[in-house]
């Protein structure tokens, strides 16, 4: 059941110059599947914005948000007790597999992976998480993630972890693994190609500009092999890689 609530801000703290951890209390505990998202009304912009749910604990939700413009800058200025209109949980989350789990996050693509790691661990898995970014400034929440997963880091400038792209970290991946990924489209496309070569099962969380967030306006479509153009918000945002014609 989706709900529209006025949530109370618990905290809005900067993890790095560009990354915000926003924690809210929605006043109502709704089960959330990792990969589902919330649509948040931002002060001063026309459309609500979709954000992956980073963590969910009863009525407390957290969001990992990259500050990219006026709306997200205003989110960073929220004070405890401020209210935000939040519609959640939306879309379909990751399907948890019993295969060895590898989580791949590029930059803010880490957002849905914390809750995923937590849910995988609760299901008895010990996932590996590979985080990538341009530099160490793009790598946040390592401590939080390490509670649920073994973590590897790759940065393009080598300022943290291995120098290079996350895909290079997957070269020794055994076939038959289940890879869960979220991040920039170029990274997802590289993984899509790698999945076919290395024969691992890949789920991708796509990002899209959305208007309604519930499959009504048909604004956020992506092409799929079986069903043609479908809404990222309601048919996704998580897709099986083999369903995408990339």
């Amino acid at each position: 059941m989706k709900k529209l609530v006025n949530a109370a801000v618990v905290s809005a703290s900067l993890l790095s110059p560009a990354y915000l951890l926003l924690i809210v209390n929605t006043g109502t505990a709704i089960p959330v599947a990792a990969g589902q998202f919330a649509s948040i009304g931002l002060p001063g912009v026309c459309l609500r914005r979709p954000f992956s749910i980073h963590d969910a604990d009863g009525a407390v939700l957290s969001f990992l948000i990259k500050i990219v413009g006026g709306g997200t800058r205003r989110l960073a200025k929220l004070k405890p007790g401020d209210t935000l209109s939040i519609m959640y949980p939306l879309g379909n989350g990751f399907m948890l597999s019993e295969k060895p789990a590898v989580l791949v996050g590029g930059g803010c693509g880490l957002a849905p992976l914390l809750l995923l790691a937590k849910q995988l661990q609760a299901a008895g898995a010990r996932p590996l998480a590979v985080l990538g970014g341009r530099s160490k400034d793009d790598i946040v929440e390592l401590g939080a993630l390490a509670k649920y997963a073994a973590v590897r880091v790759a940065t393009e400038d080598g300022s943290l972890g291995a120098r290079g792209l996350v895909t290079a970290e997957l070269n020794d991946l055994k076939s038959g693994a289940a890879v869960y990924a979220c991040g920039p489209e170029a990274m997802l496309k590289a993984l899509h190609k790698l999945a076919a070569e290395k024969n691992f099962h890949l789920q991708l969380s796509l990002e899209a500009l959305m208007a309604c967030g519930v499959g009504a306006c048909l604004g956020c479509v992506t092409d799929t092999l079986k069903d043609g153009r479908v809404c990222v918000c309601s048919a996704g945002p998580v897709f099986n890689a083999e369903d995408l014609p990339w």
Partner: peptide, 13 residues
């Protein structure tokens, strides 16, 4: 099938 993405752009108000 409608038009390809991107289908939305936000503008002032």
């Amino acid at each position: 099938q409608g038009n390809p993405a991107p289908r939305l752009a936000e503008t002032p108000s």
